[in-house]
Amino acid sequence: MPTAEEWGIVFLTIRIAALATVLLLPVGVAAGVVLARYRGPGKSVAETVLSLPLVLPPTAVGILLLRALSRQSAVGGWLAVRGIEVVFTWKAVLLATMTMAFPLLVRSARTAFEEVDPRLVGIARTLGCGHLRAFFRVTLPLAWRGVVAGTVLAFSRALGEFGATVMVAGNIPGKTQTLALAIFHDTQTGHEDRAMVLVGVTVALAFAALWTTEWVSRRRARRSVV
């Protein structure tokens, strides 16, 4: 069984992953809709930039984030003036996991929205729905499975993020040490037994997340062919 300290690591990890997912969800859904429907200049550039974290080594993303947050940069300077510390705090962990998880959510959501027949949205409009109402009553329910799948994927990615996190947040026990970092740390310092306990916890979490997606998509699939 995990010790109190290990439970602390687990909860910190889950808390951050959950917060990252909640914060990403509205932005990711909005970006997914825009990419699915928008046909204009700049589309492929936006797509590429959004997908960069998927193809870059996470440590490279971490360095870029670190640079962006340094006092010399615009963003870092702005934060420093207001006394907001990000680097080597839990906020850095959050930022790193959000950056790495975002493209997964957007890609899933985008595919799901692309599969929604725009004619159905048009019919909803003729039945008295404005843009927003049509989105929440037709588009979103029809794209729901893809959005849920993307959310679970993003959450899982957030749980396991290592490379970018270690660059911007370090590996500070009790402060920025998440499961992935702790497993690495324990292995490096010869505490392989402790690492295995944490591995067990991550496996359980991963199972729970994937089963949830399966369950949700089955439940929806029974009702409709989308």
Binding site: R119, L120, A124, V138, L142, R223, S224, V225
Partner: peptide
């Protein structure tokens, strides 16, 4: 307007 497209256009959900 009451519009009925050729394939009925029912909301599958």
């Amino acid at each position: 307007v009451g519009y009925v497209p050729q394939d009925a256009g029912l909301f599958p959900h």
